[in-house]
Amino acid sequence: MKRVTIPKAGDSGVLILEECPDLHPGPGEVRIAVKAAGINFADIMARQGLYQDAPAFPFTAGYEVSGVIDEIGEGVEPWLKGKSVFALSRFGGHASQVVVPQSQVFEKPDSLSFEQAAAIPVNYLTAWQAIIVCGALQPEDTVLIHNVGGGVGLAALDIAQHIGAKTIGTASPGKHDYLKARGLNHAIDYRNNDWFSELMQLTGGKGAELILDPLGGESWRKSYKALRSPGRLAMFGISVASGHGLAGKLALAKTALLMPFFHPISLMNQNKSVFGINMGRLWHEPQKIRVWVDKLMVGLEEGWVNPTVAKAFRLEDAAEAHDYIESRANIGKVVLTV
């Protein structure tokens, strides 16, 4: 098998493609011959040495894959062998093989390519938790989606549009035409304009009922201020802390210092809520995840779930894929193919 290994913290140049012995599943596990694997910003920060949940170096990143089950462990249902699936992986996904528990595997619909299937698990489950489970978005609400052109952003846009809410998103100006064609009600150019002022203008000074913010630090303060009462702030990721070497560590420290403190009394008095999302900390809830995936598969059949692949790179070109994500040029998901 082949895998992309991160031997030490650094820029994309540290990535190594290795040949390794084949994996074999244990009891209750399956081996997937990987066809495509999703890349998330968590993988970038793990490579930079800034992600708290990453294993010790060296390790292989990757939280999600799609492919074909080619070997099963003891106790696994025999009919699964040979099935095309997508799955959540606890790292190790950026490889030609991955072994995962059967509980983390979902049958791939025929309507999806392997690349599209790899774009579902992390992005759509994060968006589902933010919009539906914790965010309780209603048709009469306004939702602000930061980085709406990214993988989670587009997934959130799909779900919010299905609900019927008013959608506002921040994105670089080169992505606005695509996002409007996708159905976004209002696109805000965060690079050249103050998104807070524009949001307030669009909402008559009231703000948004729900805000999705993957940036962290000072942005969370600003997003909380932009909430209408009653409003909810979904926090996931701290992408503003991304960086290499000493600069990355300083950015992370600065981001941590600028994070807001939410006092319970203030939350009550302002009728506002805040919540955090980390899909990498939900391994103990496979039944709940399966319920969410089932509902997303209904959305796929009905046409309101539209996994978008920005670009696919070969496993051998993982460094180029990392650079592409860090440039923030992608609209949708970036995947590695085997």
Rank of each mutant, 00 (worst) to 15 (best):
G135I: 11
A136K: 15
Q138G: 00
P139H: 15
P139M: 15
P139R: 15
E140L: 07
E140W: 13
D141F: 11
T142R: 09
V143I: 15
V143P: 00
V143Y: 06
I145R: 03
I145F: 12
N147P: 00
N147D: 10
V148F: 05
V148N: 05
V148S: 05
V148M: 08
G149P: 00
G150K: 10
G150R: 08
G151F: 08
V152Q: 06
V152H: 10
V152R: 10
G153W: 12
G153K: 07
L154A: 07
L154H: 04
A155S: 05
A155E: 02
A156H: 04
A156V: 02
L157D: 00
L157I: 04
L157P: 00
D158K: 04
A160E: 07
A160M: 08
A160F: 10
Q161N: 12
Q161Y: 03
Q161D: 02
Q161R: 15
Q161K: 15
H162S: 10
I163R: 02
G164S: 09
G164N: 11
G164V: 08
A165E: 03
A165K: 02
A165N: 06
K166V: 05
K166S: 04
I168A: 01
G169H: 11
G169D: 11
G169M: 12
T170Y: 11
A171S: 12
A171K: 04
S172D: 03
S172F: 09
S172P: 00
P173H: 14
G174L: 10
